[in-house]
Design a protein around this nucleic acid. Structure first.
Lengths: 110, 110
DNA sequence: AATCTATATCGTAATATTGCAATATTAAAA
DNA sequence: TTTTAATATTGCAATATTACGATATAGATT
């Protein structure tokens, strides 16, 4: 054992878990925040922004990309990364709807 | 190596990462969704709702609790779990603010 | 007190993640 | 074409996560 039993959960649950997992590391949160802060696609720079070695950053970027949180396109010599808005929108919608459900609920026992 | 370098990131980045990580597993997403669906504190039941063995569920509950996503209080023989709204609110605020920044940005190159 | 019920903890195997040095790749620059 | 710059990949060690059987714990029921 040791592998997540994805097959037993719904597609949406797995999809949210995948996005959340990608943001489950401060370095990846920092990358996403940086991409938003500079308000542009970034070619280069990202490694210099983080307190981690280049291969480690490259790995984190790959994970963010696999999860669908960022997009990367080759721009000559460098690679241009930017946020994939659809992922952020998914998360925002998800937590927004949960939040709404919580504020309008009747039972508030704890 | 193998341990996350939390010390190199901001408190907020670590805090978001902790919450996201807790939701980075479909079973824990399912638990949170169930607690919201039943609109109440739940004593028992959770194990029966999930396709995982009791010790596994117990472990997932512990992680959600450590991350601050759920609260648990002893209710006689059983334990009563419910959502900690503050955590959901944090996530909602965070992704809401990111989403806003994305829609109002100028550069949209990708 | 003995038993039942609900949950936690321990121990452990399988697998995944984190981090980096070394190396590869690829395109621009000289 | 050699060199430089940016990024990816490989390989590996350290650590964390996932899952569950066995067992412990603690309150309720009999």
């Amino acid at each position: 054992m040791g592998a997540t039993k994805t097959a037993h959960f719904t597609g949406k649950q797995n999809s949210i878990a995948t996005l959340a997992k990608a943001l489950g590391h401060p370095a990846r949160v920092a990358i996403v925040e940086y991409l938003i802060k500079v308000d542009a696609c970034i070619c280069g720079d990202i490694v210099n922004e983080l307190p981690l070695a280049q291969p480690t950053v490259s790995q984190h970027l790959k994970e963010l990309k696999n999860a669908g949180l960022i997009k990367g396109s080759i721009e000559g010599n460098a690679i241009c990364y930017c946020i994939d808005e659809r992922a952020i929108e998914k998360l925002q919608t998800y937590f927004g709807s949960i939040s709404t459900k919580l504020t309008t609920r009747k039972n508030n026992c704890c």
